[in-house]
Design a protein around this nucleic acid. Structure first.
Lengths: 153, 153
DNA sequence: GTGTGTGCAAAAGATTTGCAGGGCT
DNA sequence: AGCCCTGCAAATCTTTTGCACACAC
């Protein structure tokens, strides 16, 4: 369940790559911000605090490498930047996201709610589903409460 | 059901904008390529054939304007470019997309398959859903047939 | 010494913006 | 005249790439 750096190190080695200090710090930051869907820039800034010599290109290369190895998932919420987070292993990596249009928070939904929908797609459209992305835009619980209290919107 | 330029013209006027020749050609191209999910560049190149003086910035501005007016929907399939298509009016604009990883074709699913899922999200997560994006990645019927015939992949 | 990985700077690609000019009212 | 709209070029932003150097085996 828990992702460990040691674990990733083995995956890197078995694919012929090394766990360099830069990659290790990057991984550490990602582990500390699990489910935060950081952008490359976000990761870069945080890694830089701990490893100031790092270059943005290295962060991009690391994020791409880890995505290729299916350790990270690269996703895109339509705001022009790619965001990265650990790919869930147990759940067939079928996560959904709830994006609050008020506060911008991104919340994960780990339940797989789409198996029925997928069956329909496969039967009705003859489309063999390999993966899916589901994003809901709306207002999160906290912002709904805030709105009720403070009607200044 | 059918979108007409005249109709859009009225929407523009009531919002204080004009239907310029550039905007009209852009609309015409979009109408001719409904459900094709053209990128700004795609639209630009096609408009240019008919209206060579147009600038790319104008196309961007038109696409943004029409998206603001909820005539177009701006979407993003994670390939780094925004794509545009008419927003479906009848269907609560809840369309889903099937993206074929073999041939790149994007197919529309107009059925609303998510009303049950949405209820779960609202009840379980207290999240007020306003819109959603659902994309399936997989292999379309045609490419599956091609693969069966020609096992050269 | 061969190869991988890095930092920097430059390049590339998509989109936005500043500005002067054009047309309509 | 005033205002909206346009084309062009420049600017911006994200991401990728080229290159020389460093480090490991």
């Amino acid at each position: 369940m828990e992702i460990k750096i040691k674990n990733v190190k083995e995956q890197l080695h078995s694919a012929g790559f090394k766990l360099t200090p830069q990659r290790e710090v990057t991984l550490k930051i990602l582990l500390e911000n699990k489910n935060s869907h950081l952008s490359a820039e976000d990761v870069f800034l945080r890694v830089k605090e701990e490893y100031p010599e790092i270059g943005l290109a290295t962060v991009y290369r690391t994020l791409e490498l880890l995505s290729d190895l299916q350790i990270l998932e690269k996703m895109n919420f339509g705001d022009g930047v790619s965001r990265y987070d650990f790919r869930k292993t147990g759940t067939k990596h079928f996560n959904h996201h709830l994006i609050c249009v008020k506060c911008g928070k991104v919340q994960e939904v780990e339940d797989d709610l789409l198996s029925d929908v997928e069956k329909i797609i496969e039967h009705e459209y003859g489309f063999m589903v390999m993966d899916h992305r589901l994003t809901f835009h709306g207002v999160c619980r906290e912002c709904q409460l805030k709105e009720d209290t403070n009607e200044t919107d």
